[in-house]
Amino acid sequence: MQGNVDKTGLRTASRAKGLALPPCDTSVDWLHRAHREQLALCNELEEVADSLPTNINKQKCIYAAKALIPLIKGVHHYEETILFPWLEASALRSSAMSDTLNRLRFEHCEDECFAEELTDALLKLGSGAEVNMEAVGYMLRGFFEGLRRHIAFEREHILTQIDSHHTA
């Protein structure tokens, strides 16, 4: 399947006749790769949290701040414009799937708002500005723990459904 590289560096699925192509192996691979990239960022954020308050790697803070919003928004855009519409129109459609997708959309909104606040805090940390270290540590841990739970939920409730559908 052809695709374009988006601003996050991940390959977006192509479209045919204005409709999202079903998540074939390439799209599922894309989602697995997106999850790995998000989890790698979570690991970086955890290292920043563990370094507080005295061993802060300012360069890591700036890198994480610059990567956070584009990665999160890019993955959410893919899921909400390609994957979720396909799931809603597919044989996997059910009231449980609809509830699951609504939950994930809500979490996306929360994660994006939280990512914006966290980006500001990381940029301050990276520049050496005064910040409340306890609050920043709390923000970091809340974000990466929530994102890890979100990914685990997607793997359990979305990817397992797709995998079982493709093998059926």
Rank of each mutant, 00 (worst) to 15 (best):
G3C: 06
N55A: 14
L159D: 12
I151M: 07
T167R: 15
G137N: 08
N43F: 01
F143D: 03
P53S: 02
A91W: 01
G3P: 03
A13V: 06
D50S: 13
L140P: 05
A49Q: 04
G137R: 12
A115P: 00
G74N: 04
L123R: 05
S127H: 12
G3V: 06
T81S: 09
P53F: 03
C24I: 14
A65S: 04
A34G: 01
L39E: 11
H157K: 14
L41Q: 02
P23R: 02
N132D: 15
C109M: 14
L123Y: 06
I69G: 07
D111I: 08
E79Q: 11
H166C: 06
F84W: 15
L45A: 04
A152Q: 09
E130Q: 00
W86G: 01
T26R: 09
G74M: 03
V28D: 01
E117M: 12
R105F: 14
A121P: 01
E117L: 14
H35C: 07
K73I: 14
D29F: 12
T100Q: 05
D50R: 09
V131M: 00
V28N: 00
V131Q: 00
S164R: 13
L10R: 08
I62T: 15
L104A: 06
D163F: 08
L21K: 03
D99F: 11
S90C: 08
T100E: 11
T12M: 15
N4K: 10
P53K: 04
G9A: 11
L41T: 00
L92N: 05
S94Y: 02
W30G: 04
L101H: 09
D163V: 14
L104R: 07
L87A: 10
R103N: 13
K73A: 15
N55F: 13
A20G: 13
A96Q: 14
L123N: 07
K7A: 11
P22H: 09
L52H: 08
H32N: 07
V136P: 00
H108C: 06
K73N: 15
N43S: 15
E156H: 08
A89L: 05
A40L: 12
E44G: 02
R105L: 12
Y63P: 00
A89E: 07
H35F: 06
E130I: 05
L71P: 08
A20R: 15
L125R: 00
F106P: 11
T119H: 04
W30S: 13
D29A: 15
H35G: 01
M1H: 09
S95Y: 04
R15W: 15
Q2R: 03
H166D: 03
P85I: 08
H150V: 06
E107T: 09
K60E: 09
M133K: 04
I56D: 03
L21H: 01
A16I: 15
V75A: 06
E134C: 08
K66Q: 04
S98L: 09
M97E: 03
T100K: 04
D25K: 14
G142L: 08
G9I: 03
A129N: 05
E79D: 10
F84A: 10
L101M: 09
L118D: 07
H165L: 12
R149K: 10
E107S: 05
L71Q: 06
F144N: 00
E107L: 06
D120M: 14
R33N: 11
I56N: 05
N102Y: 10
T12D: 13
S164Q: 10
A65L: 00
M133E: 10
Y138F: 12
A64R: 07
